[in-house]
Design a protein around this nucleic acid. Structure first.
Length: 723
DNA sequence: ACGGGTGGCTTTTTT
DNA sequence: AGCCACCCGT
């Protein structure tokens, strides 16, 4: 492949980024400026022009979805399969490294990965053993603390000496938790990275090896890296290695979970010779949408200078709708979407984006009423579902009887008459014997041959042994069919009440389908894992999608956070009210407020053609009504870039009745009426048009009648007459 | 072991 | 208003 072929579809700045022979570069890439293209084309350049083997290139992303997409696009450009290329998430890549160097890393060969849920269970268990009051020390907070420490690269010993009592206690739990993980071969997500860092840090030979091995490292979404990820990158690259990072400080929305967008500035300090290239041309949105987004984000202090521009058409103004309440807001959105479809648009081109998940309910109600299909991003993903995790725990036990986390999970699922008491005894026995729960259960079953608990343990042991007979098969589908059958999980979950039970059974069936189609591919030829082991590791690192059917034509609902990286022709940002967005809990801290503003910037820049921002005067929240003023972010958009759809009815306060302030003159499309017109109705009498929706035969107007109260009327039925 | 009642909480989420 | 976790009674 020649250079022109790689460069031809790229703009000047993008080409510069790719041709740059600087060892290190920083690409500041605004929303929709083609950053993924820069990475994929850079890989093509390195491989085709500079003759670097793709196996010597590492590309790092944050999500599995992004990693898959990246790999696919690189394969597309290079025209070859790159299954063993180091293209993945931080966790995926470094898990791979730990698997290869488990000994040097001080792990057992079959170490198990704990996801957040598993981790919390272990923490609770540890705390109970330490006799710590779970009410006084919420386990979720402890979990947060532990992960924070690990993400900052701290082992217990490094926690500073002048700690508060709270921190002392937390540190104590951290230490015990870690001891349990070491003993049981458990590795949580943060541990994957910390352990890898320590592995490279303590092992000069290995460090040298990998620094030579990876001739070039490329990092996507660099503004989302946390401390340990940054340190890890520095280890793998070395002081003078080749690395290109791509990021956008304006899209940093994960600082609350440890991401440090400051790593961008830090990078330019650590690599003073780095090329800095800005990608400011946006290919996604209209000029008006971009200007509006720019006018919001420019209110943030200390940004890296960067302003998006576009060659796209001017486009429509940002539309602002002031709704009465959340139901009105939802109805408005659905009506606009119906119009969009009527004009030939597709449902999947429409996205409704909101700040918090609770907002989806009223939107769903409205969409359901309109009988339109929709899809919600987020929520519990496939491999995180309880029934799936139960099935996987059986499989994990089949692979490794000493996996205590899996043992704890399913020893009494389905119910086997093994209660808390019995488990306490078992744990104590295991601790005494310094053995796993499995071994302790075996001992117990062997020693006293009578008693209910004992026979229950024996039943369980026999069950796992039976399941395990096929653990080396490559036919995972039939393995899981047998497993689900033998464990009676379907019967157990099926009797959960209502819809829930049915969907759990469906998910278990879906698991069989998913595993039937699974062909494990080892990382390389030294990979000795069985198909089942590969699958279990993958399931731990990639929880999958929320729903199986991804491609359906449906309205897309999601939070602002999960909208990052996506784009839609028609976007609604709902709930633009002070207290909701920006969120109450972020309003009195300048730093947090700036993050909310970035969130707004991210949301606005998702829109390609049309952007609506809606807010409600009244919203029922936590069971009571709240009245919130319009979001400051809407106010930050200059008048000439926005268009208030409901200029007409301006209420001072909902309790004080209507005080219409008519701006007037706006025509109700394809009808004889305009806002502010006085009209008569043969039943309600005379009134004034406050507001309208739709157009022509579908137009509805809101009329505030002199007789009191206002009504929404369909123009083509109401027989209104101008006064 | 299970189910019903109660009290407390309520931003965002990946790996 | 809902959801979840926990507690207590059966």
């Amino acid at each position: 492949m020649d250079a022109n072929h790689i460069l031809e579809s790229l703009n000047e700045a993008q080409q510069q980024a790719i041709k740059s022979d600087a060892k290190q570069s920083l690409i500041l890439a605004g929303a929709g400026s083609g950053k993924t293209r820069v990475i994929t084309h850079k890989v093509a350049w390195l491989s085709s022009i500079l003759d670097i083997n793709p196996m010597s290139i590492m590309t790092v992303t944050f999500t599995n979805k992004a990693a898959r997409e990246m790999r696919g696009r690189i394969e597309g450009i290079l025209g070859e399969q790159l299954q063993t290329m180091w293209c993945g998430t931080f966790h995926g890549l470094f898990h791979r490294m730990l698997k290869m160097h488990w000994q040097e890393a001080g792990l057992i060969k079959s170490f198990a990965i704990l996801d957040g849920d598993d981790q919390l269970r272990v923490i609770k268990r540890v705390m109970k053993e330490m006799n710590i009051d779970l009410d006084q020390w919420p386990p979720s907070q402890v979990q947060w603390f532990i992960n924070k420490q690990k993400e900052e690269g701290r082992r217990k010993a490094k926690i500073s000496s002048n700690n508060s009592y709270l921190e002392e206690k937390m540190a104590e739990i951290y230490e015990s938790y870690q001891a349990v993980c070491e003993a049981e071969g458990l590795v949580d997500f943060a541990e994957i990275l910390l352990r890898s860092y320590e592995l490279l840090n303590n092992n000069e030979g290995l460090r040298d090896h990998y620094q030579r091995r990876f001739e070039y490292v490329l990092v996507d979404e660099f503004q989302d890296t946390n401390e340990i990820q940054y340190l890890l990158l520095r280890q793998i690259v070395g002081p003078d290695g080749c690395i290109m990072v791509v990021g956008d400080d304006d899209q940093s929305i994960y600082s609350w979970r440890g991401a440090k967008s400051g790593n961008i500035k830090r990078y330019t300090k650590d690599f003073p010779k780095a090329d800095v290239i800005k990608l400011e041309q946006n290919y996604r949105s209209t000029k008006n949408i971009l200007s509006a987004a720019n006018s919001v984000i420019k209110n943030n202090p200390s940004r890296m200078a960067k302003e998006l521009w576009s060659n796209n058409e001017e486009g429509e103004m940002v539309k602002v709708y002031r709704a009465f309440n959340e139901r009105d807001e939802a109805k408005f959105i659905v009506d606009i979407i119906k119009d969009w479809v009527k004009e030939g648009g597709c449902l999947s081109e429409c996205a409704i984006i909101y700040r918090s998940n609770a907002q989806s309910r009223s939107l769903e109600d409205s969409i359901l009423r309109a009988e339109l299909p929709y899809r919600i991003y987020g929520g519990v993903r496939f491999y995180e579902r309880a029934e799936i995790k139960n099935a996987l725990a059986y499989a994990r036990l089949a692979v490794d009887r000493n996996n205590d986390a899996a043992f704890e999970r399913v020893i009494n699922v389905p119910t086997r008459g093994i209660g808390a008491k019995t488990m306490d005894n078992l744990r104590e026995a295991a601790r005494q014997a310094d053995s796993s729960l499995w071994q302790a259960a075996e001992e117990m079953a062997k020693a006293n041959s009578s008693g209910r608990a004992v026979s229950s343990f024996q039943t369980f042991i026999d069950l796992i042994n039976k399941i395990a007979t096929h653990k080396d098969t490559e036919e995972l589908g039939s393995f899981f069919t047998d497993l689900i059958e033998a464990s009676e999980l379907k019967e157990f979950h099926g009797k959960e009440p209502g819809e829930k039970g049915r969907s759990r059974v469906e998910n278990l069936e879906e698991l069989i389908t998913a595993t039937s189609n699974y062909f494990g591919i080892g990382e390389d030829d030294t990979d000795e894992r069985t198909t089942l082991e590969l699958f279990l590791d993958q399931a731990a690192l990639d929880a999958g999608e929320t729903q199986a059917d991804e491609s359906e034509k449906a309205i897309q609902l999601m939070t602002l956070h999960s909208s990052k990286g996506l784009e839609f022709p028609l976007v609604f940002i709902a709930g633009c009210e002070e207290g909701l967005f920006p969120h109450q809990r972020s309003m009195d801290d300048a730093g947090q407020l700036a993050e909310e503003r970035r969130l707004c910037y991210v949301g606005m820049t998702r829109a390609m053609q049309r952007l609506y921002m809606t807010h409600a005067e009244v919203r029922s929240l936590y069971g009571s009504d709240s009245f919130s003023p319009v979001s400051r972010f809407i106010k930050e958009i200059p008048e000439e870039l926005k268009y208030e759809i409901r200029l007409a009815a301006e209420k001072e306060h909902p309790d004080q009745g209507f005080k219409p302030r008519i701006v007037g003159g706006t025509d109700v499309a394809d009808t004889p009426f305009a806002l502010g017109d006085r009209v008569t109705h043969n039943m309600f009498g005379e009134g004034i048009i406050l507001n309208y929706e739709g157009q022509g035969d579908n137009a509805r107007v809101e009329v505030n009648f002199d007789s009191g109260g206002s009504k929404w009327l369909v123009v083509s039925y109401a027989n209104l007459e101008k006064v």
